[in-house]
């Protein structure tokens, strides 16, 4: 045994003590509260997405002629294909929900404030990456909504002044949806965006580790007890439980609400009711409320405000007496998002 251990030691000159030291960072006590685990949830779901995504890619074909048929093969013919596809779809939904909740938690607890501005911005990039993954993902099924969603998305980009046409052409590989468009979405969905997401995630977590998790103090905590607990194994057990809970939840969702297939994309017929995935309902409703260019630019403006919020918030706190202004603005923002989403969800057109 020791000979083999020695051999490993020689080949990989890393001592177990160092690894333990590196990973076993003390975790603040507030992390025992479940809603603080929302950062780990999307990361775990992302791993599931990578695994199921790789499995789906084994059978998926990127040609507009056979994409729909290959998804149908996965759904109807391949063993457990329906299950893996449904898990992929539901994990995507949960991932976006978890990212949004995580961001709300960070926002309302003010965890983005100095010195964590950069990590907030990286978090915003992660949010955009996740949403774009969702968008490209449902384009790949090549059903009616995939096609028209992509077409509408591209034409939305087109209405941005100056660079719109350029962005649209870049997105569709042409003026309109064509035979080269789908492989673009596939490469974005299966290679570019996941790699970007992993890179951003690494930086995101590294910065957390460098700065330490924001510590919160709750009134009911016993002052005499230590302020932290160890990551390993205690917090890891928590994460394992969370992971298994997600797996069970996903299996249940996949069996009760399996991913279905709409009619195949038909460039000649726009469906009567066309709706994007639920996480784009906000933008979709906004676009219906206001004329094109204004709607696009105002959406862009809101995203810009979100990116720079740590600095804006700092200025507000510095220059005015409204120290908790961010909470109220946040509540208004969240209510607006919920209202627009519900509105879009409840009406047919």
């Amino acid at each position: 045994m020791s000979a083999i251990a020695q051999w490993f030691q020689d080949c990989l000159p890393v001592s177990p003590e160092v690894i333990r030291e590196m990973t076993n960072e003390p975790v603040p006590n507030h992390m025992k509260r479940w809603w603080f685990a929302l950062g780990g949830t999307p990361a775990y779901l992302f791993v599931i997405q990578i695994i199921t995504g790789i499995l789906l890619a084994f059978y998926y074909e990127t040609s507009t002629g056979s994409a729909y048929a290959s998804v149908r093969y996965i759904t109807e013919e391949a063993a457990f294909g329906w299950y893996l596809r449904s898990v992929h779809k539901w994990a995507a939904t949960l991932m976006i929900a978890a990212v949004v909740l995580h961001q709300m938690r960070v926002y309302f607890t003010g965890a983005y404030r100095k010195p964590r501005e950069i990590n907030w911005i990286i978090g915003m990039f992660l949010l955009l990456c996740t949403l774009t993954l969702g968008f490209t993902g449902y384009s790949l099924v090549f059903e009616q909504l995939s096609f028209w969603g992509a077409t509408v998305g591209a034409n939305m980009a087109d209405s941005v002044p100056v660079i719109g046409g350029f962005v649209k052409n870049l997105m569709l590989a042409g003026e309109t949806y064509n035979s080269r468009t789908l492989s673009r979405f596939f490469v974005l969905h299966a290679a570019v965006l996941p790699v970007a997401l992993i890179g951003l995630l690494v930086v995101h977590i590294m910065i957390i580790r460098l700065q330490g998790v924001t510590e919160f103090k709750f009134k009911d905590e016993d002052e005499s007890k230590p302020k932290t607990f160890s990551f390993f194994p205690d917090h890891m057990y928590t994460e394992l439980m969370l992971g298994l809970f997600l797996m069970i939840l996903l299996s249940a969702l996949a069996t009760i609400f399996p991913a279905s297939m709409g009619p195949e994309a038909d460039p000649l017929t726009t469906p009567e009711v066309i709706k994007p995935e639920w996480f784009f309902y906000v933008v979709f409703r906004w676009l219906k409320l206001f004329p094109g260019t204004f709607a696009i630019l105002s959406t862009g403006f809101v995203v810009f405000i979100m990116f720079t919020w740590p600095f804006i918030d700092a200025q507000i706190r510095k220059r005015t007496r409204f120290q908790e202004a961010s909470v109220w603005i946040g509540i208004v923002g969240v209510l607006a998002i919920i209202a627009l989403t519900m509105w879009e969800a409840l009406v047919a057109h």
């Binding site: 695994i51 499995l55 013919e77 063993a79 457990f80």
Partner: peptide, 13 residues
């Protein structure tokens, strides 16, 4: 079991 499901999925239907 999840791994087994994945393996079965990859084997011809």
């Amino acid at each position: 079991a999840f791994g087994a499901v994945a393996a079965r999925y990859l084997y011809p239907a």
